[in-house]
Nucleic acid binder design. Sequence first.
DNA 1: TTAAACTTTCAAATATTTCTGAAACTTTAT
DNA 2: ATAAAGTTTCAGAAATATTTGAAAGTTTAA
Lengths: 167, 167
Amino acid sequence: MELEQAKRRFIDSWGALGSQWGINRTMAQIHALLMISPDSLSMEDIMDDLSISRGNASMNLRGLMDWGIVHKEYKPGERKEYFVAEKDLDELAVKIARERSKREIKPALKVLKDVSSIDAAGSSEKKYFTEQTGKLYDFVLKADNMLEKATEYKDNWLAQLVLKIMR
Amino acid sequence: MELEQAKRRFIDSWGALGSQWGINRTMAQIHALLMISPDSLSMEDIMDDLSISRGNASMNLRGLMDWGIVHKEYKPGERKEYFVAEKDLDELAVKIARERSKREIKPALKVLKDVSSIDAAGSSEKKYFTEQTGKLYDFVLKADNMLEKATEYKDNWLAQLVLKIMR
DNA sequence: TTAAACTTTCAAATATTTCTGAAACTTTAT
DNA sequence: ATAAAGTTTCAGAAATATTTGAAAGTTTAA
């Protein structure tokens, strides 16, 4: 397999993976492209490589920056903006985990807390509902806390956690 | 907040959450409905409650069964099929984790392995590519293994893991 | 074997998401 | 202040994904 071919295969599957995870295909592709790029790329470079429009590139780069996993770089003497991906994978994982927690888990927890605390007196239907959503709340909260712990300690988290537990 | 209102809010947000996670809205809503249903529900019950067509209900119930998180139940003397959700949350998490690993992570690993093993001799561009995708492969593999360990031991996994490490 | 009761399938319709491209905006150098 | 170089925005177009509904398929009981 030649480089160009391998590159396409990587970018395509990273893109497909992204869309399965609720990230849009192009955003994931741009991320993939930046991950394998030794140098930072301009918007034009990205548009050309992926054959996408300027508007599309602009919006998705903004999206990646909102996730905190891509940032701008300015080259001295140049007007253009260049983009680089966060390439430390532990750091990348931490940022994604934190952002998903903030954007998705926390709001879900709020809903679960609200709906599980309606007054259950009376019908057994109500009782069942508050019981189930309450359990869900506890579970999601526990999971979110574990994720937080994990990101706190990055790759070394397990060892640190063990130490904490043992003392 | 009244039960009906709380129920709608729960089903809607579970549905929205689903679509952020690459699961379609209706499938997530059916799942939510079954989670708070003390009794098993027929396809008609589900169609009525969510105002969806028979075809839609049928396909999404099949989807949920493929994930292994909903199953059919037959009531004695009745022709109709009834559906129930897996309500043990640890069990639910394990099933989802295993299925995602099988459907998404494993195929991604294959691609990463393939593309990272092209012959890197020559250009430094190639070298960088194989290096980056190789690191990605190692990282995803490590993450997948941890997930597997976690599901093996279900809720008790951490304690078990600690024991293993200490011996 | 038939027909009633029920489920599945899939082509066409609908809804949702993403993408384009051109206009508006911003920044910088002169 | 101006214009060149660049970026962002957003309405409409295109692409994708989901949903419907009716026909085909299946199962069961008599």
